[in-house]
């Protein structure tokens, strides 16, 4: 099976390598496919292969003991799925599920270690990728830890709510995230929490505020 060298070049891990080096590295890769909904990696299990997304989109998430899901990111073209467990030798800290048909390019852990020793540039690239992920996760931790984000999301809902008779400005989760200064994933989680607590009801392209008074109390408490 031939892995596209141009694809390897587009992966952050292998940026700056010349074609000869990429030609050698390419031989260490194999291809794997996954269908929509297929779990590619399971939280708590060991991995022996580092996977990169070559086509499609993969949901990276954690599941609580109560079965609640927190999406951490969406992996797209060139993104690595499980570098944390590959580098520290521990179990997968997250699960990964195909959102549609997905093509993955994988490299076995021992082959990767050889490449890291042979090409220090790859090790430097890997450290940069991991630092970027740490930064993104720290931002997410901050947003999920502090109650004021929920309060900001609630305030946005109250500010933009109509009575259902006159047209009001419609908002996407991305727009709400930009307004609240947080990630889209945090807005999605906040809306789920509010629905579970009975403050709102999520309908087909509508967010129905079922308990306006309690939402006003959340805003007041988080101020």
């Amino acid at each position: 099976m031939t892995i596209d060298v141009a694809f390897l070049k587009s992966i952050s891990y292998f940026s700056g390598l010349n074609t000869t080096e990429l030609d050698i590295i390419e031989k260490a890769f194999s291809e794997k496919t996954a269908q929509r909904g297929e779990v590619i990696l399971l939280e708590g299990e060991l991995s022996d292969t580092l996977f990169f997304v070559a086509a499609g989109a993969v949901k990276i998430f954690k599941t609580s003991t109560q079965g609640k899901e927190q999406i951490l990111s969406i992996a797209r073209l060139g993104d690595a799925l499980n570098d944390i467990s590959i580098f520290d030798g521990g179990v997968n800290p997250v699960s990964a599920q195909a959102l549609g048909p997905v093509v993955l390019h994988g490299i076995k852990k021992d082959r990767l270690q050889g490449i890291l020793q042979q090409y220090p540039k790859v090790a430097l690239n890997a450290s940069r990728v991991l630092a970027g992920k740490t930064r993104q996760l720290l931002t997410l931790v901050e947003d999920l830890s502090f109650r004021h984000v929920l309060g900001r999301v609630v305030k946005i809902l109250l500010t933009h709510a109509g009575d259902g008779t006159t047209p009001v400005q419609r908002l996407t989760q991305q727009e709400m995230a930009a307004m609240a200064g947080t990630a889209r994933e945090v807005v999605a989680r906040s809306l789920k929490v509010l629905e579970e607590q009975g403050h709102i009801r999520l309908e087909h392209h509508r967010i129905v505020i079922t308990d306006k008074k309690s939402l006003q109390e959340i805003v007041a408490e988080s101020a």
Binding site: G164, L171, Q173, H205, R206, I207, I209
Partner: peptide, 22 residues
Amino acid sequence: TTCEAVCPTGALTCSFEIVVEE
């Protein structure tokens, strides 16, 4: 809203109308 979540350029949007229940 998965299409919106995966869109790398923000081209695809799924907007919500927010209403208060009577």
